[in-house]
Amino acid sequence: MIVSARSVSLTYQSADGEVEALKEVSFDINEGEFISLVGPSGCGKSTLLSIIAGLERPTSGTVYVDGEAVTGPSEKIGFMPQKDQLFPWRTIWGNVTLGPELRKQKDASLAESLLERYGLSDFKKKTPSQLSGGMRQRCALIRTLATDPKILLLDEPFSALDYQTRLSVSADIHGIICNEKKTALLVTHDISEAVSLSDRIVVLSKRPGQVKDIYDLTDLKGLSPMERRSDGRFKEFFNEIWKELDINV
């Protein structure tokens, strides 16, 4: 087990009162797994990622990464935020080497080889605005991979893309993550995205977020995201999770 959350609870304190965001959340992630986290809006998904990333301390409970309790940001964890968040005042090269630069590492050969491997070498000197949405997303992933983390946390990284682009970009990013043999935890609002990409899906209840169910998609293992979408079992999983989320319109 590379990540292990044990009874993680977090209550936000503010002037207006308390907000119980997470309650007794426990789950494990095995090395190399691709896990999705779904749940109603405001149920504490981003909060959970912040705790695993070491940006937020839980009120009680502990998260272990590689057997060690998380106390602060660590090199083992890479984070991919909402939208690509590339810095427009930096070139592509300046963006993907941000991590090594902040950690004062001189060696940027990993960033170099990742750009090479994923066909972005020619764009090094370009600015983010000169790239398409899909390529920007690739750059954002390479920026995260450039510090060689073991675990990737993705917080709705595709939410700003339109539907068509989203289908291909999510498959693309999924492919790169598998290719690099990273463990991933993806937060998404999109159930079909979760079913098409994941090995397992963790469903959180509405606030305070608790683990409601964990779906095992081993049945679909080996199929590409596109193949999964046209598989008969896709709809079953979709419907079950949909019911579980209990979204009242």
Binding site: L55, G78, G99, L102, L153
Partner: peptide, 8 residues
């Protein structure tokens, strides 16, 4: 948030 996870 991104900067902090990169150890800034």
């Amino acid at each position: 948030r991104l900067m902090r996870t990169l150890g800034a």
